[in-house]
Design a protein around this nucleic acid. Structure first.
Length: 294
DNA sequence: TCCATTTGACCCCA
DNA sequence: TGGGGTCAAATGGA
């Protein structure tokens, strides 16, 4: 009883601190994006550490507080940053399972046809939102015994296209219904694509080599491309400028994004765009990087 | 029409 | 044996 109240209070404080640090990191990051670098300053590194501590503490609290989570498998804590709860959950596999099936289903009905994997790497985070940078597809929802809220199951959107085996489970926390406990399992082996925010445009002045995109950037009239290391400028491509019409044809862009840190809502994104133009250039790959926060 | 979500069925495994 | 994880048909929205 008493322990529950102090635990709730402690968790609330940690959550508040985590969110404040996240906001601070976002604010600190903006000026650095403008000069063409998406790398963290040393101050940001400190923030990452702070955020990591919050997340770690929250996860530990959750682990201590929940009577039926992770109890038996806590010794298997090989997790990385933010990874404290390696549960015994298992994952689906698309591999054959016909041998072990107890009941022969119809040709189409292969529900439940899977083998669980043991010891898959997983880690748990706590957040006020269920969204993250990755593209997920919900494939199930279950009422959990003795749990107030159902658990939702998500898989990587590109599971079948690219064989990505990442999954996540999301469950609203009983103590704090505004918070969500998300358990990730399996690393993304695909380039998990999300749409860039609509206000993200390209700054033409910074489009030499890797580009930095900021919300204030303008749509370019031309695109300039430096050859990669060891790569020669294609003949007939002096100045290496591409017509803006090519650019328009490719809109909207899609970006691959990864969290800039494990504990914030700031993401680093990039895109590879290959142009086929009429200037005897077989193709030009345009790489761009930017960060945004959600 | 396509795609994501919902939901009941089914299997694994503690 | 039953809770939990996954599948896939049904459903609904864009």
């Amino acid at each position: 009883m008493g322990s529950t109240s102090w635990k709730q209070k402690l968790m609330k404080e940690l959550v508040d601190g985590q969110e404040s640090a996240t906001q601070l990191q976002v604010l600190l990051q903006k000026p650095f994006s403008e000069n063409g670098s998406s790398q963290f300053s040393s101050g940001d590194e400190h923030l990452v550490k702070i955020l990591g501590s919050f997340t770690e503490s929250l996860s530990l609290l959750m682990m201590m507080g929940s009577s039926n989570n992770c109890e038996s498998d806590n010794n298997n804590s090989q997790a990385g940053s933010g990874s404290v709860c390696c549960d015994h959950e298992s994952r689906s596999s698309d591999e054959n399972c016909s041998e072990s099936r107890k009941r022969v289903p119809s040709l189409k009905d292969k529900r439940g046809c899977y083998k669980r994997k043991k010891n898959s790497q997983s880690w748990t985070t706590v957040s006020s939102t269920v969204d993250d940078v990755y593209a997920w597809r919900k494939y199930g929802q279950k009422e959990i015994l003795n749990a107030k809220y159902p658990r939702s199951y998500f898989r990587c959107t590109h599971k079948y296209e690219q064989g990505c085996k990442a999954t996540k489970q999301v469950q609203r926390m009983e103590d704090q219904p505004e918070m969500f406990q998300t358990t990730y399992s399996g690393n993304h082996t695909c380039r998990n694509v999300v749409k860039a925010p609509p206000n993200i445009k390209i700054d033409p002045e910074s489009c030499w080599g890797p580009c930095v995109l900021t919300p204030e950037s303008k749509i370019p009239t031309t695109i300039k491309q430096e050859p990669s290391k060891g790569e020669e400028i294609p003949s007939g491509a002096d100045g290496d400028e591409l017509n803006s019409s090519l650019w328009k044809d490719l809109m909207p862009f899609e970006y691959s994004c990864e969290p800039a840190s494990m504990v914030s809502n700031v993401y680093s994104c990039y895109t590879d765009i290959t142009f086929q133009d009429s200037l005897d250039i077989d193709s030009v790959t345009f790489d761009s990087d930017f960060t945004f926060d959600i």
